[in-house]
Write a protein that binds this DNA or RNA. Sequence first.
DNA 1: GTGGTCTAGACCACT
DNA 2: GTGGTCTAGACCACG
Lengths: 127, 127, 127, 127
Amino acid sequence: MISFEQFIMDDSGPIYSQIVRYIKRGIAAGAIQDGDELPSRRMLSALLGVNPNTIQKAYRLLEDEEIIQSHTGAKSCVVLDERRVETVRNQLLENEAGAIVNAMKQMGISLEEAVALISRLWNSGEQ
Amino acid sequence: MISFEQFIMDDSGPIYSQIVRYIKRGIAAGAIQDGDELPSRRMLSALLGVNPNTIQKAYRLLEDEEIIQSHTGAKSCVVLDERRVETVRNQLLENEAGAIVNAMKQMGISLEEAVALISRLWNSGEQ
Amino acid sequence: MISFEQFIMDDSGPIYSQIVRYIKRGIAAGAIQDGDELPSRRMLSALLGVNPNTIQKAYRLLEDEEIIQSHTGAKSCVVLDERRVETVRNQLLENEAGAIVNAMKQMGISLEEAVALISRLWNSGEQ
Amino acid sequence: MISFEQFIMDDSGPIYSQIVRYIKRGIAAGAIQDGDELPSRRMLSALLGVNPNTIQKAYRLLEDEEIIQSHTGAKSCVVLDERRVETVRNQLLENEAGAIVNAMKQMGISLEEAVALISRLWNSGEQ
DNA sequence: GTGGTCTAGACCACT
DNA sequence: GTGGTCTAGACCACG
């Protein structure tokens, strides 16, 4: 069963998008793998304190991307092969790293300064 | 006149928020300073391919934060003192860089991988 | 449910203002009372042939005046006490009737002519 | 020369409309007659404290209705015959009286009460 | 030309 | 179904 303990909801876009992103990050990290079960819509909506429709929409999008499978009356589960994992991972990395690069360039700092800043933040979160 | 050449629109939240963020990043970078003129609503909306009202909303928010001033019939311009610049810069670093580092960590990649990825994207965007 | 059957849209100012005025007149008349439900944004917008956002703006203004209350997912309803009703009624009489009488006087007609004209229009609208 | 001393600007619609209405009311009252001269755009804009373009728009609308005539380099003046005056007067009366009737009906008072209210306001403004 | 406002349509989250 | 928000286009008054 996929855990949503580390899920933190912010205001960066629609809630269903944040859920989709959370799942994808877990896949990229290897924490979510082929065959893993997803919580039921009802359970997850109670856990996150959001409307069941919102969970439904997130699952629907993942289904459209063929990342999960849902069957009536049965639990939804993750369906992934090697290539799919790689694709998800690369898409995420490009997006996130691209965001950093844009931000840093707009703030007018050099690559070296950016790397230094990221390294510092990385380690400060370590403790 | 403030340049929007480096502005890149993505799907990270409302367009007006992206514009606000772009301005603030420019302020943090020192590229935008006290007294600088903003492009008019029409000009910028044509340049970015969005509705003039979207620009208006971004400018309105910046005005509410007392970062710019608008007068009917006259150009909007930036109004900043030293302290305000510092505040803007700190808010940006807290809100953005931290979130991005967290995303990388959630995806389970190492600092070295992250730095390599960022360097690659940095240079590929250079061209 | 508050009825909008007698609502007549003219070109006297913004549509949302006309809606606000209509509600206030109903309150002054006692036809709209504490606890009454308002039609939903969609229903009323279809009935009046305007955009749902226009209705939204009218309701928002009434909410700012603490005349109605809105909660996401639930119907909006009127919240009034005796004093509030009196205030609304007095504002209406001051703002409207006086202006109309002035208009008549500016046009240089006598009270008798005005009364005759009003009586005729009153009955012609009766049908 | 038509006097604008009694002109009072409120927020009931666009300024140019208020100017047009003021002229028409004067015509209906007989205070403005065929051949009367209008103030120049520059003078009136200074007197009312509004932009010359706004005056220009009001004059343009009156010209379109063939109520005034403008010639380059010469003063604008009113051009009216008996029938035109009658038409203007009737349109205004219908509009104003119609507004009263709507307001009163919506406020749920009877014709007798409405007449009483109007009579009282009429006389109270007399003093 | 400038900024300010009104109306419109689509999308999101919630009961 | 409900209300809330974002984007869009047109109009108004001003320098």
